[in-house]
Design a protein around this nucleic acid. Sequence first.
DNA 1: CTGAAAGCGCTAACAA
DNA 2: TTGTTAGCGCTTTCAG
Lengths: 351, 351
Amino acid sequence: MIEKKKMVKRKVRQRRVSSVDVAREAGVSQATVSRVFNRTKGTNVSEETVAKIMQTAKRLNYRPSVIARSLQQNSTNIIGIINRNFESNFHMQSLDMFSRELQKLGYSTLLLNLPEDGTMDATLHLALEYQVDGIILTSTMLSSRLAEDCISYDTPVVQYNRYSLYQEVDSVCLDNFKAGNEVGKYLIETGHKRIAFVSGRKESSTSIDRRLGLIHSLDEAGLPLVAEYTGEYTHESGCEAADAFIHGISRDQWPDAVFCGTDIAATGFIDHARRAYGIRVPEDISVAGFDDTPMATWPQYDLTTVMQPIETMVQETLEILMDLIKYEKSGVIKKMIPGTLVKRSSVIDRR
Amino acid sequence: MIEKKKMVKRKVRQRRVSSVDVAREAGVSQATVSRVFNRTKGTNVSEETVAKIMQTAKRLNYRPSVIARSLQQNSTNIIGIINRNFESNFHMQSLDMFSRELQKLGYSTLLLNLPEDGTMDATLHLALEYQVDGIILTSTMLSSRLAEDCISYDTPVVQYNRYSLYQEVDSVCLDNFKAGNEVGKYLIETGHKRIAFVSGRKESSTSIDRRLGLIHSLDEAGLPLVAEYTGEYTHESGCEAADAFIHGISRDQWPDAVFCGTDIAATGFIDHARRAYGIRVPEDISVAGFDDTPMATWPQYDLTTVMQPIETMVQETLEILMDLIKYEKSGVIKKMIPGTLVKRSSVIDRR
DNA sequence: CTGAAAGCGCTAACAA
DNA sequence: TTGTTAGCGCTTTCAG
């Protein structure tokens, strides 16, 4: 049996045309070619030579090597985005927006994924080895040891969608506590007495803060959290939560409002509560979500939820990062972005 | 008014520690340091010096510069992924899998987005200037002029989720014609006589092929396509399609089965048909989708749909790309991957 | 306005 | 086993 691969010619990657080639062909020095491809800042080259060089460059299909330039300039124009997962709409949209905005700013995006098993050492170091000009860390926090590494590499980092009061790292994050608190206050205002919570991932600090915000509002009103369920970012989790809150429980013990930490869980809750238990939403139970995904506007849900202003968050993150790249760091920035409560019909006024 | 930025110290990025620094500190030559960081292939360095160098490297927090190495080796270990959009689940999952698999193969991902307004010249050239080792083009086709550019740069390209018979570019794509055809045959087999189609984007070649496949099956059975609607990849499009097929149309003119080019449109169709017209799915109208997104398994839909084996498609794409990187190209590969019809209860047997 | 030359940090061939 | 040296392709003084 013959291995197919063995029969094929091994490839030696050919040398690309370089500025030297263009220079030789055009009868000028290599430096002049370089000047032509960088004459943004008043580098003076005669019209004539410019024309000649551009022409032969085009003929030889020459394009400057960003890599060589990076080496010489000590700057790659690459931003590393270290990504934890793509599980939610929020993450996808954020990534999309980051890479588009970076492109507009003249940067490219090096996309790095955290391995499932967790440690980000290797991933972060990879980014540093690529000499990226900056790093955006989504939904993860930097250990102080790794933060040191970034500093010693003089590579700015901004955390997105995660923050810690005890860290020197700049961050941009939705104010999940406040948002959770506002949902709670709204549910209380509208006359709900028996409020329950469905959490996203247990370890997720965003979920934890939303929950704490809710509880704070309940405490102030002297109300209990009557039930809670911890799941994943899935429709099924919402279904399970409905079972947990309703199955085998007498009607007067049901919650009259359920705050779900994610829209997707809210849809699951609503669907299952209706189908399996004939519960009317919002007449029997009000439901609120989080994220304002497209599904929130589907007529059967018409979900009261919290909108995360992704565009603003991305812009703020990039602004901080660009400043860190250009100017000396002075102090730590922890930007908390407020969410917006979007009121729809899935929460009813019970007063 | 004082500009804040003006008050801040402009930053000059410091030089990073290089192998020369380590060499000096450790009292060895720079080449030896390099060897230590590359001793995979039997480069012989004494235990003693290795220890000494590793120690001072750690102390100085030295890490080799991938950029410098790339320049010298004429290879960056970066793969450029040129992405059209993130609008669907399929795209996100593909991107996620690509970047994870590439990372396993020792490559990093440079993520480039096509601008809204369309031309990919700039984007492709950017990738080439970064000297990426290969390019994956998702949901787009390469003009023959740009294909030339890639060839002259000796940079392999593989198209993902798009193909063209007239191109020299390798590609991996779901066999959308066949999949559409199978859905059609299945609907016919199960006794449907009045079949309608809801398209994804009009220009999208994947949608076009799904439609052609469907029509081919109808032709063979001597059945007409009773209605069709062209929308977007949204729930709302599905709702609109329901209006188009049902509103103001006498019951005997309704379709008895609707094939939606995407799951998301199928959910919209089902929801709206039920809510606005009291139609029972599948009793009155059967519905099939495409993609096998998580929603397809939600109980209220339980959608018959076509699963795209994303993992296989990604693996095949990478295999082709890796071969193109290592070996001389011999012939053009156009890999058509079959979809899998997933039968669920949204299509009923009418025989 | 243009050329010569140094050097960014690294690898690899060649010497020792 | 280790050091010396020549580039990789570019930008950027410094001369002319």
